[in-house]
Amino acid sequence: MLYNISLSSERLKELRLKHGYTMQDIAKKIDLKSHGTYSDIEHGKNILTSINALKLANLYNVSLDYIYGLSNNKNNKNLMNDKELDTILKTGISYNGKTLTSTDIIALKAFLQGLTSSK
């Protein structure tokens, strides 16, 4: 099993209720076609995709490991703001052994913005 489906389902419900959201609210926030699709995820009938898990982790400001039931630590150290991202990308980060160019950095930031624009 890739993740603990039943624990993940419990946590998603707990987080949703804690934040006062309906299933329909969450479906809209993470760009699902219907609240039924989200309901199936929350009830463990559908697999939680990595994209939806990331959107939910960002929405609730918790770690992906917590969402997936792999850790009890809610701390989301992987979230950062735009300024922190700029600092990290400009310090010589590389991919596949090649340093990112200014154009690469702009494209990467645009991609990340597209992933999170629904919030």
Rank of each mutant, 00 (worst) to 15 (best):
T87S: 12
Q113T: 15
K13L: 05
N61V: 09
L100W: 03
S39I: 03
Q24H: 08
T99G: 02
L32T: 07
S39R: 08
S9F: 13
I51C: 00
D104C: 05
I105V: 15
D31E: 13
L112G: 06
L56G: 07
I93N: 11
T49W: 06
A107D: 14
K45F: 11
L48Q: 08
K29F: 04
K29H: 09
G36K: 06
S71G: 08
Y95M: 02
Y38G: 00
A110V: 01
S102N: 15
S50W: 14
L70M: 12
F111H: 15
A57W: 05
N61W: 10
G36D: 00
G97L: 01
M23V: 02
N46P: 03
D40R: 14
F111R: 14
T101P: 11
K83I: 11
D82L: 13
M80T: 03
H35L: 04
E14W: 07
L108W: 01
S39A: 10
L17T: 14
N96Q: 11
N73A: 10
K33S: 15
K13G: 00
T49D: 00
D104R: 08
L17Y: 08
T91K: 15
T49I: 03
A53R: 09
L115Y: 08
T49M: 00
K83P: 00
H19N: 15
D40L: 13
G69S: 05
K98M: 02
